[in-house]
Design a protein around this nucleic acid. Structure first.
Lengths: 199, 199
DNA sequence: CATTTTATATAGCGGTCGGTACATAATTCT
DNA sequence: AGAATTATGTACCGACCGCTATATAAAATG
């Protein structure tokens, strides 16, 4: 095996767990949004000082980007729903229901981190979040394209829009059942759109 | 007629047009969001100094609330679509298409001022925007309840969620046609849900 | 006229923002 | 043992935040 073990670098070793710090940042960003959390609050929650944060992550936006990457990776089980051979008319409604449940499950971290970040007033944060959002939408599109190449773009846009609306409702404090009802109604359009040769 | 004319009050008269100032504020809030515009920038765009702004509007959040009220009033033509006797299965798709067009028409003021404000990280601004949002959602619900009382809540939530998603897409720079396609697909669920006695 | 009332402009309040200069501590390399 | 490299804590930067104290100017009222 190639030794990809953590080979000690040359200077003073970092005194905090980088992954744990990212997890702390994720929690704060999820609870208060990108602009709702300052660097000082992030550093304090991590148990470090601002210079250590900047040395480890570069700048606030770069830290945010790493958090988004981890968030995207953690959503792998959701992406796993969309497997080759699966029927989008069945899977996408499941995806919406899952999202509805996740978004409203924990009121302290309501909504989707990426979707909410994509609406940030900070252009840097919004741009980075939208990159991850486009990536996720691309996954949905490609999944649909396997069976319905013509409608893949529209349906992917639609699914993303519904998820964005549910995320906003979750942040407004709406209960899970209310989001689930939206997801189920949205599924009607998906099934109608993806019906086997409607004409 | 009762003289509701502008009777000169007792002190030094205001040196700027209050309505024009509100319109300026609306434009700035619409372009950059509540937190993206500072009081200094608002005052400068109005051609006044901060103390005059505070004397006229109270505080930033109160000014924002007045702007939202004007925005809601300006949307009266949209609300007029939902008239007594109209068929929700026809009117709501029209509403979504109109919204899609309006949201993406001017890239400098993309999306819905109320829907975007409802996601603000500032709790005061978000609360005020959500009040106006609930009012608008109530209008949709009441309109649906005329013909489909059982499904009014769900369908209203769904329509609002789709509009919220379209608003986010508009702010991300998506072209009007892309939003319109989402609106049209969303209409499928509305017609399916409101179909005349499907069983 | 003087008084009262309201709006204005200047200047600045305390606080937070993202980010850093600096000296020091801890580690590896020579 | 040094030298080189990296991380850390203290203390602070200028810029902006929402907001206001103060004095003055412009109007109605007496």
């Amino acid at each position: 095996m190639v030794d990809t073990e953590k080979i000690r670098k040359r200077g003073r070793p970092r005194a905090f767990d980088r992954e744990a710090a990212l997890e702390t940042a994720r929690s704060l960003f999820h609870a208060h949004g990108y602009e709702g959390v300052g660097v000082a609050a992030l550093a304090e929650a991590m148990g470090i000082n601002p210079p250590s944060l900047y040395a480890a992550f570069g700048c606030k936006a770069a830290l945010y980007d790493e958090v988004l990457a981890r968030y995207d990776a953690a959503a792998a089980p959701l992406h796993a729903l969309m497997q080759l051979g699966a029927d989008p008319a069945v899977t996408l409604p499941q995806l919406l229901r899952e999202a509805a449940h996740i978004y409203a499950a924990d009121p302290q971290m309501a909504g989707c981190l990426v979707l909410e970040g994509a609406r940030s007033a900070d252009p840097d944060a919004a741009c980075r979040a939208r990159n991850w959002l486009d990536l996720g939408r691309g996954r949905i599109r490609d999944f649909i394209a396997c069976t319905h190449p013509q409608k893949a773009d529209v349906v992917a846009d639609y699914v993303a829009a519904v998820m964005s609306g549910m995320s906003a409702d979750a942040r407004a404090g709406h209960p899970p059942e209310r989001l689930a009802a939206i997801a189920d109604m949205a599924a009607l359009a998906i099934r109608a759109m993806l019906a086997p040769t409607p004409a």
